[in-house]
Simulated scan of single mutants.
Amino acid sequence: MVGREIVLTMKGLKKIEDELEYLKTVRRKEVAERIKQAIAFGDISENSEYDEAKNEQAQVEERIMKLENTLKKAKVVDEDDINLEIVSIGTKVQVKDLEFDEIVEYTIVGSSEADPYELKISNESPVGRSLLGKKVGDKVEIQIPDGVTKYEVLKIDIDQSNM
């Protein structure tokens, strides 16, 4: 895991940069103010407000470090480098579930951007990993926790919402 590259779309990079900016400029100040107020209550040895504020400060600082580390390791997928002939990170892929005769559209993203509720699946997930490199018309069997599912790749496009 050390030194491992973190693949991000432009949208994912922006989201991380925005959160980092918010934590550094807003949350740090809010927490520092809470600590200052808690100290004003007097004896900090039995001051639960102080303890809570210090714990929150530690969490904010830990999150800042994690985001900064992510940015150091980030490799941003450039829309111009995406080959629409094959499924890759940054593409939206439309597949047909051959078992249930349903069409599903997934966006393949790096693991730090995955959000199954938005149908953004990680390139490291079983489905994402199995779809990578596939072309329109390819059929793939994917081992999932419930067994095996079969997909046919119908369409590959760029997910404009991630660029």
Rank of each mutant, 00 (worst) to 15 (best):
E5Q: 12
I6P: 01
I6K: 05
I6N: 01
M10W: 06
G12P: 10
K15D: 15
I16H: 05
D18V: 04
E19L: 07
L20E: 03
E21N: 12
E21K: 13
K24R: 14
V26Q: 10
V26R: 12
V26H: 09
V26W: 02
V26L: 04
V26G: 02
V26A: 06
R28S: 10
K29N: 10
V31P: 03
I35E: 06
Q37C: 00
Q37A: 13
A38T: 05
F41Q: 11
G42F: 07
D43N: 15
D43F: 08
I44V: 15
I44A: 01
N47K: 06
N47P: 03
N47C: 03
E49L: 13
Y50G: 05
Q57S: 14
A58E: 14
A58S: 11
V60S: 01
E62D: 05
R63Y: 03
I64T: 07
I64P: 03
M65F: 09
L67R: 00
L67Y: 04
N69R: 12
N69V: 00
T70G: 01
L71W: 08
K72S: 07
K72C: 01
K75N: 12
K75M: 06
K75A: 07
V76N: 04
V76D: 07
D78C: 02
E79C: 01
D81K: 14
D81L: 13
N83I: 05
L84M: 09
L84A: 05
E85F: 01
I86K: 14
V87F: 02
S88D: 15
S88W: 04
K92V: 00
D97S: 05
E99S: 12
E102L: 13
E102F: 11
V104I: 15
V104E: 10
Y106D: 04
I108G: 03
I108S: 05
G110Y: 04
S112Q: 11
E113N: 03
D115P: 01
Y117V: 02
E118L: 13
L119I: 00
K120Q: 12
S122G: 03
S122H: 03
S122Q: 02
R129P: 01
L131C: 09
L132C: 06
G133L: 07
G133V: 03
K134T: 11
K135I: 06
V136E: 15
G137K: 08
K139R: 15
V140Y: 10
E141Y: 04
I142W: 11
Q143M: 07
Q143L: 10
D146G: 12
K150M: 10
K155I: 02
I156K: 08
D157A: 13
I158W: 06
D159H: 08
M163P: 00
